[in-house]
């Protein structure tokens, strides 16, 4: 049981980082499926940074910086140029695939780097002694603790601050925001960049935090799952938290069931997270909080 919970939380951390990060830009009306590519890029640069400097933390910073650049390209094309957001997301994913494979071969494979320094867990005294959940929750790495805090932080910014109010308004009715003097383009740019930073961190957590290595295509759809979590979470912080946990349970279950000797083949359990995502999207009928202007570029005047 404990083992299962540990794996669930391991799966939840990158999902939480990425979905909570992208929640703001989604709520502000931009659809970013380039998350997959951002996470992949973050995963590679996290490992590269750790390899170069020996510190996974500097690695994570480099990962986030690389994703800022990628997000800037995405934001420029979708907000300023008003290109189709979904196709642009695919373009970003393709670019990220090419970039990561190339750089991986140039810097890592050719130097036969197998493992780099990863994040070390930092147990929190006393709390980690609580039976069952102690080890699960309080013997974790820094990005994992950050993910917990991020849930609260995102909720706070989303519902209590001026910025949160602007974000909630922009995806709903950009023209109205324009008439009260909000710069719609600037807000969309900044939320996209922020989402990129978080996706970069999530990617670095997957590579440096879980495997201490990079492998090609290692994100395998988790960026899409993070995007689906925002939709299924009805575009609210707590909803996103809930759907991330559901997806994480699905992923944890997958590993658990793979290890167990079930009559159903191991490969079917591999499909489980993807099937859960599809089912979740089909169950999301109410759409009460989905931004009305999602995916539609704003033309001033």
């Amino acid at each position: 049981m404990e083992e299962f919970l540990v794996s669930v939380f391991k799966m939840a951390v990158p999902l939480l980082l990425c979905s909570l990060g992208t929640l703001f830009s989604e709520k502000a009306g931009t659809v970013n499926i380039g998350l997959e590519g951002s996470m992949l890029t973050g995963a590679l640069f996290g490992v590269l940074g750790s390899y170069w400097t020996g510190s996974p933390y500097i690695g994570a910073l480099i990962a986030m910086t690389s994703c800022v650049v990628l997000s800037l390209v995405f934001a420029f094309f979708t907000v300023t140029i008003r290109a189709n957001q979904i196709v642009m997301g695919v373009a970003i994913n393709t670019i990220a695939t090419g970039l990561t494979i190339s750089l991986n071969r140039i810097f890592l494979t050719s130097a036969s780097v197998v493992k780099v320094n990863g994040f070390k867990s930092i147990p929190i005294p006393f709390l980690n002694k609580i039976p069952v959940i102690g080890e699960v929750l309080f013997d974790q790495t820094v990005p994992a603790y950050f993910a917990y805090i991020l849930v609260f932080l995102t909720w706070f910014v989303y519902s209590k601050t001026d910025l949160g109010l602007r974000i909630r308004a922009v995806g709903e009715y950009p023209a109205a925001c324009d008439t009260v003097g909000i710069n719609v383009a600037r807000l969309r740019y900044s939320t996209l960049l922020y989402g990129g930073i978080m996706a970069g961190l999530a990617g670095a957590y997957i590579s440096t935090g879980q495997l201490s290595a990079f492998s090609e295509g290692m994100i395998s759809g988790r960026g899409f799952t993070a995007y689906a979590a925002v939709i299924f979470g009805n575009f609210t912080p707590l909803g996103v938290f809930r759907s991330c946990m559901i997806f994480a349970v699905g992923m944890g279950l997958q590993y658990r069931l793979q290890a167990m000797d079930t009559p159903v083949s191991y490969y079917f359990w591999m499909m489980l997270p993807y099937i859960i995502t599809i089912v979740a999207l089909c169950m999301y009928r109410k759409r009460s909080n989905a931004p009305k202007y999602s995916g539609i570029p704003y033309v001033k005047g």
């Binding site: 910025l163 909630r168 308004a169 009715y173 109205a176």
Partner: peptide, 21 residues
Amino acid sequence: MLVPTLTVIENVVLGMDSNHA
């Protein structure tokens, strides 16, 4: 020019310079 999903007061203060963070 009111955001229908927000409350009246949220619409009223939306975008004002004098808002605190």
